[in-house]
Design a protein around this nucleic acid. Structure first.
Lengths: 115, 115
DNA sequence: CTGTATCCACCTTGATACTG
DNA sequence: CAGTATCAAGGTGGATACAG
């Protein structure tokens, strides 16, 4: 597999992909990560960014990702309270993968609608 | 976002990621693609590769991916019949993304178990 | 604003049995 | 070997109401 000199075995790759998906599974997680790739966001901002997600699901997914050390949650001392989410250093390591996925998604859209 | 010179906007990235996930969503698709990244495979080989998947789900996911032009299905003239699946040229474009995901998955496993 | 609780419809998946 | 059919169970996610 090109571009992956460290990997020489199929099963190992599949396991790795499976591990990654265990953390990024669910309908919304990668979209949320994508949103947070562009800097810290408040709850309501993510809600607007990720089209179609409900408040319940956003809370739930963010809590999941917090447990997995992917995002940090900070309650800001404002009136009324606002909460800021941001990728942890660990979460930042997902950026290249998100970038790849986005790039493919754009090409895919062209493939579907463009011609 | 580093490594993505063409993308300058958050919403567009999120949409792109969403589009990609529309095709790769579901519990098993990325694992199946990962398996096929290592060359054509027969149904039963994929079944062994992707740990935990049932025959029903494998059939269903492969059919989905065939509709989306990601994989080719070829019935081989053997006795009994065997069926070979392989990534289309279009499906091959997913390789970099799978490679990234696998790389991250391996690091993630270290993060969880390694220390 | 940022959630949580509840109820509920739907979808996904697994198990099993069966076909060509 | 490569599927399909059927059933049952559990998970997923939306709507709404409510709380701090």
């Amino acid at each position: 597999m090109e571009g992956l000199p460290e990997i020489h075995e199929c099963k190992r790759t599949i396991m790795a992909v499976h591990d990654a998906m265990h953390v990024l599974g669910g309908k919304w997680k990668v979209s949320i990560v994508a949103s947070l790739c562009f800097g810290p966001k408040r709850y309501s901002e993510i809600l607007k960014d990720v089209h179609g997600i409900s408040g319940k699901m956003l809370s739930r997914e963010l809590k999941d990702m917090e447990l997995n050390k992917l995002v940090n949650r900070t309650v800001l001392d404002t009136q009324p309270v606002t909460v800021q989410y941001e990728l942890t250093d660990y979460g930042q390591t997902l950026k290249p993968m998100i970038a790849n996925l986005a790039e493919w998604g754009i090409e895919h859209r062209k493939e579907i609608f463009g011609k």
